[in-house]
Design a protein around this nucleic acid. Structure first.
Lengths: 161, 161
DNA sequence: TTATTTTAGTTGACTTTATCAAATAAAGTC
DNA sequence: GACTTTATTTGATAAAGTCAACTAAAATAA
């Protein structure tokens, strides 16, 4: 009793190729910016995380803590991020955006919007609607699966060559 | 006369975050393999390109020719790819998969399928259907935009810090 | 024809990005 | 108070990617 609808796997493969291109285009705002993509991720995440610490960032962004530490240090050096030692726990530091960091992030988001604008400007109303609906359908369909594998342990790197 | 439907930009942002996670999960087959992602891209592209040359690869994958050259060399060393000098044009070489390369690619695709399987195994029929439909809607909506920016010249890297 | 320019691919030198293990120092536990 | 765990940093290195110079073949023009 295999499904009747067209084979899912090739369709997903196809969509992945397609949407990776879209993402590549939309992320040009990062490439065109003065920041590395690690820096943008960190900036974004600090911007939207309450009582943000290095630990939280590492978990959320799945980033190596060493690499993260250096990335933060670079952002600090440019006065975009500052840290304040926790009073309850002297091992950890709260990270926040400085005024300047906030501005930079805001400008980045404007560029991102602009990029999305390029993508969608010429769309007819019916395509905009289709896009919205399509995104919603995918999110609804996969929401549970996403949760599932987020909980699963990460697979280990296998063979060495 | 701004659109009536919910704001497109935040919805796209949201979906991008969501689907990047999905892609991250689905691409674990690469991370878990013995190949670098550049190697996988090249292997895949050679596998599906007629009369494949380095030039074609570089254009299609937007890869630096130097990096590409070394990537191919590595694949050659492992007997996955071979080249044959063109008779009409001694500057270029046709690239093809060896038996072994073909096998490796096949195995990679099996792993990729498996990964997609993990994602979709638990989906109810109605969600599978929704997923398919959603993908189709997005592709239809954005097909033209994608063509458009694929033709546009690539933006240059801007300021130095 | 041969001199000049363009094209395909390679190589060397280098930068950026990322990983991993050891070190540091504060907290928590027995 | 000794031992362990936890948060973060640092050093050493590896992997990924970029760029310009180079080689050799083709195409073009004098």
């Amino acid at each position: 009793m295999n499904p009747v609808h067209p084979p899912l796997i090739p369709a997903i493969r196809r969509f992945n190729r397609f949407y990776s291109n879209i993402l590549g285009f939309l992320n040009q705002y990062v490439t065109n910016s003065e920041f590395s993509s690690a820096e943008v991720c960190v900036l974004l995440e600090i911007g939207q995380t309450e009582n943000c610490t290095s630990k939280k960032l590492a978990r959320e962004l799945k980033m190596d803590t060493g690499y993260l530490s250096r990335t933060i240090k670079r952002l600090e050096k440019h006065n975009l991020v500052a840290k304040k030692r926790s009073e309850k726990d002297g091992r950890s530091y709260y990270l926040y955006l400085t005024e300047e960091g906030s501005d930079s992030l805001y400008k980045l988001m404007e560029l991102s919007d602009e990029q999305i604008g390029y993508l969608t400007a010429e769309l007819q109303e019916k395509n905009k609607k289709g896009l919205l609906e399509g995104m919603k359908m995918i999110e609804d369909a996969l929401a549970d699966s996403l949760l599932l594998f987020k909980k699963k342990p990460k697979l280990a790197k296998q063979t060495e060559r």
